[in-house]
Every structure is written in C-alpha cells, then in structure tokens.
C-alpha cells in the first residue's frame, strides 16, 4: 500500500460563544483523532497564532478521503494544501494525532518552537515537518 504524507494549513473558524477557544479546539481535535484512528491515519496537529498546521500520514487513498472530509468542513477556513508526497514510512507512526498547542505551558519554549515551525513552513515545508517531529519528541521526553 502506498503511503502519503499531506501537509496543510487552515485557520479555525471558531464559534463565538460561551465555550472557550481551548475547549472548542479540544473538541475538534478529539473528533478528528477518533476518526483518524479508525482510518489508520497518523500525524500531528499544531495550533499556533490562530492557525492549524496538520500533517496526515496514511494510505494514499485514505489520506485523500480524510483531506476531502476536512475540505468539506466549514469549521476550517482558508485551507491551503502545502505539500503532498509519497513516503516510504510514517514519521509520526506513534501518534494517531499528536497535538502541539500554543499557550498550553507559558513557561516552556514550546511557543517559540511553534512560531519557528510556522515560519519554516513558508520557506521549506519538508524541513517544517521534520521540525514538528523533533519538537514533539523533545516535549514528549520532558513530559515522561
């Protein structure tokens, strides 16, 4: 089965209301993770400066399907497909959908790292994906 990695960005169209942005994000990401697990999708979701950056990895046909579902979802706005490449193996095989959110821990260096990733995205998408992986690994080590 050919495996693809897809990278896209979008801005979240969150509803103004009693629910905090964090909670809405959590719900969104939770829903997505559940669907992804069923579909055998792995990857990472970054939220930085009101923007989503998401990597989806999986069987090419499934990635296509999941991305089409995202494109049909009006909670996303300004969806931009940054990169789509065939890959030999998954980079984020351990996470059905890892989450890296800005502002979760003001003390950590995470916010800076995420801003760097966002900057890198405009310059070299593949390097940005690698940076996401490294960031994820390093914060996971700290957490454990």
């Amino acid at each position: 089965m050919p495996i693809s990695r897809l990278l896209y960005t979008s801005s979240a169209r969150l509803e103004p209301g009693p629910q905090t942005i964090d909670k809405q994000l959590c719900r969104l990401a939770g829903e997505a993770a559940l669907l992804n697990e069923e579909a055998g999708i792995t990857g990472v979701l970054v939220y930085v400066e009101e923007q989503f950056i998401q990597v989806l990895e999986g069987e090419s046909a499934v990635v296509e399907e999941v991305f089409e579902r995202i494109c049909c979802d009006f909670r996303h706005a300004q969806i931009k497909l940054i990169d789509l490449i065939p890959v030999r193996q998954r980079m984020f095989a351990r996470w059905h959908m890892a989450r890296l959110c800005e502002g979760a821990d003001p003390e950590s260096m995470l916010d800076d790292d995420l801003k760097n990733i966002r900057y890198l995205l405009g310059v070299n998408a593949r390097a940005a994906v690698e940076r996401m992986y490294e960031t994820l690994i390093s914060y996971e080590d700290i957490d454990s």
């Binding site: 693809s4 896209y8 090419s60 296509e64 991305f67 089409e68 494109c71 969806i79 497909l81 789509l84």
Partner: peptide, 17 residues
C-alpha cells in the same frame, strides 16, 4: 460565499492536486 469558498478548496485526486 460558502459555495465559492468550498469550491476553491484544494482537492486531491489519485495523488494529483
């Protein structure tokens, strides 16, 4: 506006964008 937006979103068909 929703129609215009949803149509302008990318689409992946058999690995082609």
């Amino acid at each position: 506006e929703r129609v215009v937006e949803v149509l302008s979103r990318p689409m992946v068909i058999d690995g082609n964008v």
